[in-house]
């Protein structure tokens, strides 16, 4: 249940960044301005789509899986737990790559990205805990 709540917050954070990237939202609420630098860098896109849009897709997938997993009939499903573990594990790897880019290539840190990275790590930790039978 907690995972679904975190994933839903992640969906909205990613949508916010996606809408900014597409020009529908003005200046990002960021504080330092580094969010703009990161979002408008050439790494702000991945395979033709804003990275944030991929993030929205990721969080939506995790959300759907977790809401499914919270239904009584799937509560004990090992397959679903494994799927959530794999998806969130992939999320951690992708986030690690993005954080590397921020630190060593773009030389700017976006607070929204840090927030998203924290949620991705939390989701993975909870998925591990769930897989381990927590």
């Amino acid at each position: 249940m907690l995972m679904a709540l975190i994933a839903l917050i992640g969906v909205f954070v990613s949508l916010y960044l996606t809408l900014y990237k597409l020009g529908y939202i003005g200046t990002l609420v960021c504080g330092t301005g580094a969010c703009e630098t990161v979002q408008l860098s050439r790494w702000g896109d991945f395979l033709g789509l804003p990275v944030a849009a991929w993030g929205a897709g990721y969080y939506l997938l995790v959300f759907v899986l977790c809401v499914g997993g919270s239904q009584e009939r799937y509560e004990l499903s090992r397959g679903l737990s494994l799927a959530i573990l794999l998806v969130t594990g992939w999320g951690v790897l992708f986030t690690a790559w993005l954080t590397y880019l921020e630190l060593f290539r773009i030389h700017a840190i976006c607070r929204w990205c840090v927030g998203s990275a924290s949620m991705v790590v939390m989701l993975f930790a909870l998925a591990v805990w769930d897989w381990a039978g927590g």
Partner: peptide
């Protein structure tokens, strides 16, 4: 659980709608 989901969904949609409708002047 469902109440919390609804609260997050309403808050999220509301925030995004508000931000996308701000007049252009506010982000200059």
């Amino acid at each position: 659980f469902y109440l919390a989901l609804a609260v997050i969904a309403v808050a999220g949609v509301g925030a995004l709608t508000w931000m996308s409708r701000r007049p252009a002047e506010t982000f200059a």
